[in-house]
Nucleic acid binder design. Structure first.
Lengths: 182, 182
DNA sequence: GATATGATTCGATATTTGTCAAATCGGATT
DNA sequence: AATCCGATTTGACAAATATCGAATCATATC
């Protein structure tokens, strides 16, 4: 449940009356496709489609029993608060409209490039935050690509890369780097 | 958040990436339409549409400030667990596949009509549950219509109607009846 | 291994949803 | 009261989704 698309799809799975009914039925006991189709007066194909969406969202799991595929409610996600899901992994970064932040960015970035690395920790974090935003989540980067991306901002990519790791915004594992959700 | 459609619409409001982003933006601070449109690179019209869905779902509230309409995050619903919302007001009625229940229904219903009113409370509840399912939620019925519906099952509509009220499954107000969610 | 049976996938269609430009609205400013 | 300005609504179109029948699949059963 990391990126926005996945979260939206999770809620999309819950966004149809039939699918909510299906969850209710599977809450009572595991159900198979035809049984649900019968109760809801829908075709098997349609129910199979709904079940697939619910299973992909992690709300149901299925298990075969003889001829039947039984779908069982999964509780983990249902027990979570809506906001936990929506804002999970959303960066706790500063408001983009913070005036101090805006001034620091204006002072240190010239034509998109970092004119110098701020000495003050607070200011350095602001420019580092800006830089880390060039990295996507859910993707691994080789060191060469990390360097290349940072080079777009400043020549001393080694220092900046080390700082990003130090702040925990980039993670290194087996020689590959990935952006961390904070 | 009573009926299925409303619940589905609530989750539908959360089922688009742009709308999740909008919630994130409005979490930081109240935002107005153009501001969001600018950040998300969408037209004002589109953002207005998204905002309308989120507000209808109860996730945002808006307030005018000078020229601007500021949208503010509403926390109540976000703090609730998913299952609370999905299963809120879902009838605690017996599993339709319960064998005892099935037997009672078989014994007392002949060709869709109640052959006699069960004397035992437990059995009576089962047949009354069956009858109340002929009523829709979120609709008011005049007494004449209530009687007519119950008449389809048994001649003694007065007794059955009184029992349904007694169980709290039908509610009477100003001479009109409505089905209660239990 | 042939067959029966429930599940899934495919293909087609109807409905719903997302998007934007243009027109309209409604409160603020002058 | 005339004008300004952001928000909303309207109308049109594109994209995504729901639905079903038919074809295909997977696996129990014989």
């Amino acid at each position: 449940m990391s990126n926005l698309e996945t979260k939206a799809d999770f809620f999309k799975a819950l966004s149809h009356p039939s699918r909510l009914l299906i969850l209710g039925l599977c809450k009572q006991k595991p159900r198979h496709t035809e049984e649900i189709a019968e109760i809801l007066k829908l075709s098997k194909a349609t129910v199979s489609h709904h079940l697939s969406l619910l299973a992909t969202a992690g709300l149901l799991e299925s298990e075969r029993d003889q001829y039947y595929q039984n779908y069982k409610l999964q509780h983990e996600l249902l027990e979570r608060k809506i906001e936990e899901i929506i804002f999970e992994g959303v960066k706790g970064f500063a408001d983009a409209t913070d005036p101090f932040r805006a001034k620091v960015l204006r002072d240190f970035f010239k034509h998109g490039r970092l004119s110098q690395i701020p000495a003050q920790r607070k200011k350095r974090e602001i420019v580092l935050e800006k830089i880390v935003q060039s990295f996507e989540y859910d993707r691994a980067y080789p060191e060469s690509e990390v360097n290349q991306i940072i080079l777009e901002f400043h020549d001393d990519f080694a220092t900046l890369r080390r700082e990003l790791i130090g702040l925990g915004w980039l993670h290194r594992e087996n020689g590959m780097y990935s952006r961390v959700k904070v």
